[in-house]
């Protein structure tokens, strides 16, 4: 309970810390939301021109962005500390987390807020509303969507943590971690109809990009218990893998005194 109380306080203080610079806080949030809208417009017109691809209608792109960007917004805003793991390792700031009590992963995760991610969250929610209203969602579909956002956020957190943890093993961990994370994120906002056959399997199991975007859209439109089970199991799988990988890798941490080298 102490760790959770601290995590909540950490998030509050970090938001307050970011809000102190009010103007940059607001510009970053709305700037990011506007940036995302431009992507959406491109995808929407692409869908409208091409028509239905593998069952995907142009308006489904709102659902894709709704799930993936909302999950991205939740994790990257209040749990942004995980994206700094490579930096914490390089400049040995991980020491600070090891020297204080409470759950280290929770402390690292909540050690930072990414202001721009609030813009993504705002954008994700707007997309989600457009998607649900245009598809005339029932109450059950709303409940299912809410459950899926939670599951999708878990997958998002887990794979991001896994990518960042890789940097414990490499000298240039930043590049590899960010590369892996980049593959995951960029594929999560690609048109769901583009993934078929083996490619679809790869991006469901090995790099769960489709689990945070395309699969939830397909599931709320056409419910199947099997699909829900698969998404749930993938969330559990990546959750267990990433957390145990993090704690195993933490033992390799050698707290170097390397700071200020390179860029």
């Amino acid at each position: 309970m102490g760790s959770l109380r601290l995590a909540v306080l950490n998030i509050k203080k970090n938001i307050a810390n970011a809000k102190e610079l009010k103007l940059s806080f607001m510009i970053t949030i709305f700037g990011m939301a506007i940036n995302n809208i431009s992507f959406l417009i491109i995808w929407y017109y692409f869908g409208k021109t091409v028509g239905i691809i593998n069952g995907w209608k142009p308006l489904d792109i709102f659902g894709l962005y709704g799930f993936s960007t909302t999950a991205y917004g939740i994790i990257s805003s209040v749990f942004a500390g995980i994206f700094d793991i490579p930096t914490y390792i390089t400049n040995a700031t991980l020491d600070n987390f090891l020297l204080t009590p409470k759950n280290i992963l929770l402390k690292i995760s909540t050690s930072k807020v990414r202001t721009s991610a609030f813009g993504d969250l705002l954008f994700g929610i707007i997309c989600f509303i457009v998607f649900t209203v245009s598809n005339k969602f029932t109450f059950i579909q709303y409940l299912l969507s809410l459950l899926l956002i939670i599951i999708v956020s878990i997958v998002f957190y887990s794979f991001s943590l896994f990518s960042m943890t890789v940097s414990f093993y490499l000298m240039d961990g930043h590049n590899v971690s960010n590369g892996l994370y980049g593959i995951f994120v960029s594929n999560s906002i690609y048109h769901g109809g583009a993934f078929t056959g083996i490619l679809r399997l790869v991006f469901i199991i090995l790099v769960p990009s489709l689990v945070v975007g395309a699969l939830p859209v397909e599931l709320v439109k056409d419910f199947s218990l099997m699909k829900l089970l698969v998404i749930g199991l993938i969330a559990i799988f990546w959750g267990v893998i990433s957390v145990s990988f993090f704690y195993k890798s933490l033992k390799r941490y050698d707290s170097n005194s390397l700071f200020g080298f390179g860029s």
Binding site: R5, L6, L9, N10, K13, N14, A16, N17, A18, E20, L21, A92, T93, D95, N96, T100, P101, K102
Partner: peptide
Amino acid sequence: RSQLLPNLPLTESMEMFGVMY
């Protein structure tokens, strides 16, 4: 290396550490 929150008053960081302990 600093452990304090840069944009907030010192009391806020001290309070956070108090909760941590």
